[in-house]
Design a protein around this nucleic acid. Sequence first.
DNA 1: ATGGCTACTCCTAGTAGA
Length: 261
Amino acid sequence: MTPPAPLRIATWNVNSVRARLARVLAWLERQRPDIVCLQETKVVDDDFPAAEIAAAGYRAVVFGQKTYNGVAILAREEPVDVVRGLPDDGPGAERRLIAATVGGVRVVGVYAPNGGEVGSDKYAFKLDWYRRLRAWLDAACDPAAALLICGDFNVAPDDRDVYDPVAWRGQTLCTDAEREALAGLAAWGVVDGLRLHRQEGGLYTWWDYRAGAFHRGWGLRIDHFLLTHPLAARCTAVDIDRDERKGDKPSDHAPVIATVG
DNA sequence: ATGGCTACTCCTAGTAGA
């Protein structure tokens, strides 16, 4: 018996799928992932570039809105059992979560709120969104299943994930409350995929557009793969495609790719 | 020391991102 080929699953905050379309298509051609979760698509569903994505060989399920937020899952086979949003999202809620099953893996793609200034309404919304995400996991998902949550979590889990942890201490993305919110997902039953394989600092997924931050190495690791234990046991690698942050008109986030045997 | 860039829209200024 030939073992099944490993699945390569990617997450990428593209910062507008329409502004980034040429790069997204070139990246799909180069990396050929099986599944891709996109965040910050910034487009209503009718205007999602589904035809171009289909021509590249991918089905797309989308959950977008005008200007802000927006998530999608691309896959070589049709994603099934699609869930859009959290059950207690109100009408007109920000579109930040999409889930689907592909290749026997339950894939949850998330774009966590940024949080604005610490102590602001946006910050409170972020922490509450994490609370609601955890409640949905408790109610609707199975930590014993092959499930992953990936996306832009807008939290750097610890000081290794921050280029200047002293300057960032207490700032949005790095506060204890945000880190505890992320840890609340781990307590449900997922582990940080990248840390299964690599312990060093300096592995970043986001660099500010300003001040030449990328070239100065001023980054944070805020895009993650969280894997249930059964899936973690099959995860052979998690790689940050740092090269995709280079060149003309990049997203401010690099893609992250998990390999699952 | 510095909100320094990018993308969006009710568009050429204001908002948001992280």
